[in-house]
Simulated assay, not measured.
Amino acid sequence: MSMKAIRETHGVPAKRGQRVRFTLEGSAPRLGTIRSANGGSLYVQFDGEGFT
């Protein structure tokens, strides 16, 4: 699934290079950058980490 398909399917404005905040219930939010998409998943490189 492409980035365009993810935007259309989930109604989100996801684009490569966009900054995001990821939050799990009960955890502190994590900030990162969208790097790519594959198979309906977004790959995010979180700040301070060297991998997606």
Rank of each mutant, 00 (worst) to 15 (best):
G40S: 06
Q18F: 00
T9D: 01
E25H: 10
V44I: 15
I34M: 10
N38M: 10
R30F: 13
S27K: 15
L24S: 07
Q18K: 03
L31T: 15
G26M: 04
I6E: 04
A28P: 09
M3N: 00
A14L: 08
Q18M: 12
Y43F: 15
G39W: 06
G32V: 09
G17F: 06
D47Q: 04
E8N: 12
G11D: 00
A28V: 10
T33Y: 02
G17D: 04
G32D: 12
M1L: 10
R16K: 14
S36L: 04
Q45L: 02
A14M: 09
T23Y: 01
E25K: 13
S36V: 00
G17N: 06
G50L: 14
G26C: 08
M1N: 06
G48D: 07
H10P: 00
G26F: 06
F22T: 08
D47F: 01
D47E: 10
R7A: 04
G50E: 13
K15F: 07
G40Y: 07
L42R: 02
G50Q: 13
V20D: 07
G17K: 04
E8R: 13
T52Q: 12
F22G: 00
G40T: 07
M1S: 10
N38L: 11
T52Y: 15
A5E: 11
V44Y: 03
G32P: 12
R7M: 09
E49K: 09
D47L: 02
F51A: 12
V12C: 05
S27I: 00
P13H: 05
S36C: 03
E8I: 07
G32N: 09
T23P: 01
A14N: 07
G17H: 09
G40W: 11
L42T: 02
A28M: 11
S36Y: 06
S2D: 09
R21K: 13
F46P: 05
R7S: 06
Q45N: 04
R19H: 12
Y43P: 00
A37Q: 09
G50A: 14
V44S: 03
K15M: 06
S41K: 11
M1F: 06
S27R: 14
F46D: 02
Q45R: 15
G48A: 05
T9S: 09
S41N: 15
P13V: 03
T9V: 06
L24F: 08
Q18C: 02
G17S: 10
G48P: 03
K4F: 08
A28F: 07
V44L: 04
Q18L: 08
Q45E: 14
T23A: 05
T23E: 09
S2P: 01
M1D: 06
R7K: 15
K15N: 14
T33D: 07
